[in-house]
Amino acid sequence: MDYSIIKERRTLLGLTQQDLADYTGVSLRIIKSIEAGKGNPSVSTLSKIAEVLGLELRLQIREVAK
């Protein structure tokens, strides 16, 4: 999954990673790992980030080939 939209939106809004951590209640370490593409955030964490950044979180269930 590509989380680059989080960093792009955060930067566009003039927020630091620390700002985002403070506003969401998510640790700075987790924010950094998500933006680096190394995190595996929960839906709850992504929802908090999306809300602060004015983004929409969409969940889609993929059909698995049989």
Rank of each mutant, 00 (worst) to 15 (best):
M1R: 00
M1G: 04
Y3H: 02
Y3K: 05
Y3V: 04
S4N: 05
I5A: 05
I5L: 13
I6L: 07
I6T: 08
K7C: 02
E8D: 14
R9A: 04
T11L: 15
T11E: 15
L12Q: 15
L12K: 14
L12V: 02
L12D: 09
L12F: 10
L12Y: 09
L13A: 07
L13Y: 12
L13Q: 01
G14H: 03
L15R: 01
L15I: 00
L15M: 06
L15K: 04
L15A: 04
L15Q: 00
T16F: 03
Q17T: 01
Q18H: 09
D19I: 00
D19V: 00
D19W: 02
L20I: 03
A21Q: 06
A21M: 03
A21I: 01
D22F: 15
D22S: 11
D22C: 11
Y23H: 12
T24A: 05
T24D: 00
T24K: 08
G25A: 02
V26Q: 07
V26W: 02
S27H: 10
S27V: 07
L28D: 03
R29T: 10
R29C: 10
R29D: 12
I30V: 14
I30P: 09
I30E: 15
I31D: 08
I31E: 01
K32P: 02
K32V: 00
S33W: 09
I34K: 12
I34R: 02
E35I: 00
A36D: 07
G37A: 05
G37N: 09
K38P: 04
N40Q: 08
N40R: 06
P41T: 06
S42Y: 06
S44E: 15
T45Y: 13
L46H: 12
S47A: 13
I49L: 06
I49H: 01
A50N: 10
E51S: 13
E51M: 10
V52I: 14
L53R: 00
G54T: 03
L55N: 02
E56W: 07
E56Y: 11
L57G: 06
L57D: 08
L57F: 09
L57A: 06
R58V: 10
L59W: 05
L59T: 10
L59N: 07
L59S: 07
L59V: 15
Q60W: 13
Q60C: 08
R62A: 11
R62H: 13
E63N: 08
V64T: 00
V64W: 01
A65H: 04
A65D: 05
K66H: 13
